[in-house]
């Protein structure tokens, strides 16, 4: 028996997404395919698998990505789906769990990546604000009011508003993430050498 669910998670909501997948698993619905917004489950035993999302440096379709997925397969970690640089992994509960060390490492990668995105949109906001102001000023100075200048002002402002909305939405998540980064780095330094 199969079940398809359409659901949206923002990129920084990976923990929520992971929790949801594991909750589905505890109800006996095992994820077998994941794409953008689309999750396919198959009926199985409750808690048969443990799920985990991992963010790769390279796309899973590249040779490096493939080599990693193959390696995981060799250590009984199955990849059931991928979406951009994320892979959806599962491990049979009877084969153990993802190790805590793996969790720390991959949490750190994920958090840093999302942080990059936040910084990008924040910087974009600033650039666009500066650009549209500068543009307005120049147009005003040289008294140039054409269809093009209107378009460009609108264009810069549009991107600026988009990026600022994005940054604003992300602020609460980012504040939490910054705290987590510090905590994970502390944990890593304790476990160093293993």
């Amino acid at each position: 028996m199969k079940k398809v669910i359409f659901k949206t998670f923002f990129i920084w909501e990976y923990e929520k997404e992971e929790k949801w997948l594991n909750k589905m698993s505890s109800k006996g619905w095992q994820l077998v395919d994941a794409r953008l917004f689309k999750y396919t489950f198959e009926r199985g035993e409750p808690d048969e698998y443990i799920y985990r999302l991992e963010l790769l440096d390279k796309k899973p379709s590249t040779s490096e990505g493939k080599a990693y997925v193959d390696f995981l397969d060799g250590v009984n970690i199955e990849s059931v789906g991928q979406c951009r640089n994320w892979i959806y992994l599962r491990i049979k509960r009877s084969n153990g769990d993802f190790s805590s060390e793996d969790k720390v490492h991959s949490n750190l990668t994920r958090i840093m990546r999302v942080d990059d995105l936040y910084q990008f949109s924040r910087n974009l906001t600033l650039c666009m604000v500066v650009a549209s102001f500068a543009f307005l000023l120049i147009c005003h100075e040289v008294d140039m009011q054409t269809r093009w200048s209107d378009f460009l002002t609108g264009f810069f402002t549009g991107i600026g508003i988009g990026a600022s909305v994005m940054s604003l939405i992300m602020i609460p998540a980012m504040t939490r993430n910054r705290k987590k980064i510090k905590q994970y780095i502390r944990e890593l330094s304790v476990n160093e050498g293993n």
Binding site: Y68, F71, L72, V75, I77, F98, S99, E101, D102, H105, S106, N194
Partner: peptide
């Protein structure tokens, strides 16, 4: 490698997938 390492260290050292990779 994971199994042998764990055996050799009497279950003390459990290599994680990420570390081993």
């Amino acid at each position: 490698i994971m199994q042998e390492t764990s055996e050799m260290s009497n279950g003390r050292l459990k290599l994680s997938a990420g570390t081993l990779y």
